[in-house]
């Protein structure tokens, strides 16, 4: 299958004040996004999932640096592209939405102005036609009284409305790839459901591929075709969504799944992964999850496991291949 984006062996590190060594936030990550597909990148705070997308888009903070790897998008390596070229792609063939849409909207321009600009950049519509199209888009993403809202500034809208404006913006640009970083985390469930449906709609209409970065396994189950699970800067498991939720193999993924209160009756204990995530500057020598893993053997503490293909592209970074793991 053709990939719209293919990341290979990405390494990203950060400097911090007064230290010579750099903290490696992403350590040799590879990830493919098939054209028209939705790929989920899941993990907990600090696992490197957001850093991955920011480095691909050339948006790393100043103390961040891509040390190695490539990210092929439509034949070009995004990591080697000059800033100017990358900026052109970002507004054009690749759209991004973030947890807090306020950061990606210009606070001193009305949403209508921002939308019409985006539309006119990507078409030869005149001002009036672009305005009509913008209002149509606002209506489409479910903004009430779209014609009035057209003249509002971002701060006059609720968080859910702002996120919908961002999706409207993405629709105006009909991007090849939408990178969504926790787009619904700050929203109420009823608004979250609306946003997820709009993303599916964007994909259906324009064949847009989606990279969904989230910590919410419910959102992953709802939206994604394939899932990469990250832990401490590395992919520990990759599988299609049905396999992952039916039969995940890595002890970390299993632990995450078991920690979720689903139908768990009151009084019954929830499974919890012991301990906390390791420090970026003091990674365990062997498997990075070993100190928290109930199944870890001496080998796990001493030697680093690679990603093993369990069949059909189901990858797992574990010596035990998770077979003996059972948290039920």
């Amino acid at each position: 299958m053709e990939n719209i984006l293919s990341i290979k062996d990405l390494v990203v590190s950060f400097a911090s004040d007064g230290r010579k060594d750099r903290a490696v936030a992403v350590n040799g990550l590879s990830l493919d996004i098939p054209r028209g597909g939705t790929v989920g990148l899941v993990g907990e705070s600090g696992c490197g999932k957001s850093v991955t997308s920011l480095s691909v888009m050339g948006l790393l903070a100043e103390n961040g640096r891509v040390d190695a790897g490539e990210a092929r998008f439509a034949g070009q390596d995004l990591l080697k592209l000059p800033d100017r070229e990358l900026r052109k792609l970002r507004g054009n063939r690749i759209s991004m939405i973030f947890q807090e849409p306020m950061t990606s909207l210009n606070p001193v321009l009305t949403v209508g102005r921002q939308l019409t600009e985006a539309i006119r950049q990507h078409s030869d519509m005149d001002k009036a036609a672009a305005k009509a199209r913008a209002i149509e888009l606002l209506e489409h993403v479910g903004i009430p009284e779209a014609a009035t809202r057209f003249g509002n500034y971002p701060h006059q809208l609720s968080g859910g409305m702002r996120q919908r404006v961002m999706i409207g913006m993405a629709m105006a640009m009909t991007p090849d790839l939408l990178i969504a970083d926790e787009p619904t985390t700050a929203l109420d469930v009823s608004i979250e459901a609306q946003i997820l449906r709009l993303m599916k709609d964007l994909q259906r209409r324009h064949g847009t591929s989606i990279l969904m970065i989230t910590h919410n396994l419910g959102v992953v189950a709802e939206l994604c075709d394939e899932v990469y699970v990250m832990y401490a800067g590395e992919v520990v498991e990759r599988a299609d969504v049905f396999t992952l939720f039916r039969d995940c193999a890595h002890p970390y993924t299993r632990g995450l799944m078991a920690s979720l209160p689903r139908m768990t009756p009151k009084g019954q204990r929830l499974y919890n992964i012991r301990g906390t995530v390791p420090n970026l500057r003091a990674m365990p020598a062997g498997c990075r999850f070993a100190p928290r893993c109930e199944l870890a053997s001496e080998r796990c503490h001493a030697e680093k496991p690679g990603l093993i293909d369990l069949g059909g592209g189901h990858l797992c970074r574990c010596f035990l291949r998770g077979e003996a793991a059972n948290h039920e």
Binding site: G142, P144, S158, G160, M161, D188, V189, S190, I191, E192, A193, Q194, L196, R197, K200, N216, L217, G218, V219, V220, A221, E222, L223, V241, F242, F245, M257, L260, R262
Partner: peptide, 21 residues
């Protein structure tokens, strides 16, 4: 509206609450 951690429960046709809070 709560997205459930089970992809077999996906239902793109289910009714959503429209409008704003």
């Amino acid at each position: 509206a709560v997205p459930q951690p089970d992809p077999t429960l996906r239902d793109d046709a289910r009714a959503l609450l429209a409008g704003e809070v």
